[in-house]
Design a protein around this nucleic acid. Structure first.
Lengths: 200, 200
DNA sequence: ATTTGTGAACATGTTCACAGCT
DNA sequence: AGCTGTGAACATGTTCACAAAT
């Protein structure tokens, strides 16, 4: 909206863009403080900036990519990560044939170097794209080296100590959700809503 | 559990495996019917079978992959989809250099053939892996041809008519969730819980 | 006139705790 | 004795509706 030249925006318009209600937007924002001006709405630039801070996105996040297979490669090339402030700064694998190669200037290192690299590059977050059977072992090493957040693409349920955040993305599971939604049950509660209800 | 030879399982054990509580498991199951035997628990094989039916997973789902780029390629090679009952049976792209090639015996076709292919192969679900700028256009065509479910990997908010299910996977967003969780706020409400609470 | 921020009302989701069955 | 299925109690999340601010 900033790029579109908008200087101010109401909860109603925000809600429309995002697929929720105006009241919801206001209540959600209110949990973090007071952002708007009554009668006017929210100042786009300052709202954006405050939200970036709340979400921890004011900084760039250096990311370790674990697994230089096909999925790892697709992730590495995925331009959206960088655009959104996440930069893959190291790639780790255990296959000797891959170690030593570079992707776009980023060297693929041995997983054994994980401790050294993570410390040197101050990495806190890792993208795990290894086979499911290796995922828990890799994650244990990562956590041991001080990684605090993990985005896991392997279809494996990971066990991590308190204080480490894991986010799982399982594409087969997402397809299963669609499968259920298409069942002979009509519209399913909990389905993604695309329609906007707004204040009366 | 079936492979492990278990013939019967309690809500408590199911809950542990899945990261929730025994009461939650029982309540959730009860919404779909009555599956267990008091005093004994659930019969593994029959529970599995009933759940497969409820989720619509008793059948194989033929899937159309839209976009033969890097992400599309990674998805196509991803063995887990097939293992979980989803088989990519056609690949559509608009790049003439890709059309006509085959991946592992599956021909890449022009997106213009979408209607014909979807009908012939009885495809109801598509995996959209095209650039964000093209996503809405592609989805409109898919919906026009009778696709009922879409798993969207492009970071674009899609508008679809009622009766079509869309599921969005946005990796940058998942990293943002981690970014927020790592903020100086301690443990965050809504975070994935790994600890199991069970009935007393 | 317009729009926020927020208690209060309402709705949905989770846990408790126990009767009822094996 | 052990475990399910489920109302009732409790907790969390959403919407309403309006006073306060510009």
């Amino acid at each position: 909206m900033e790029e579109e030249g908008a200087t101010t925006v109401s909860s109603r318009v925000l809600a429309q863009r995002v697929g929720t209600t105006a009241a919801q937007v206001r209540k959600d924002l209110s949990l973090f403080g007071t952002f708007g001006t009554r009668g006017l709405g929210y100042e786009v630039r300052s709202l954006r900036e405050r939200l970036r801070e709340i979400l921890g996105l004011a900084q760039e996040w250096p990311i370790a990519l674990i697994g230089a297979g096909r999925i790892g490669s697709a992730l590495f090339e995925y331009p959206n990560l960088r655009r959104r402030g996440f930069e893959i700064v190291t790639i780790l694998d255990r296959d000797p044939r891959k170690i030593g190669r570079s992707w776009d200037g980023v060297r693929i290192r041995s997983i054994d170097e994980v401790g050294e690299v993570i410390e040197r590059l101050r990495i806190k977050v890792a993208l795990v794209a290894v086979p499911a059977s290796e995922a828990q072992g890799v994650v244990d090493r990562l956590v041991g080296c001080g990684i605090r957040g993990i985005l896991n693409l392997a279809p494996a349920r990971l066990r991590v100590p308190d204080g480490v955040t894991v986010n799982e993305v399982d594409l087969a599971l997402e397809l299963e959700v669609i499968s259920y939604a298409l069942g002979a049950r009509g519209t399913v509660p909990g389905e993604i809503r695309q329609d906007v209800t707004s204040d009366p």
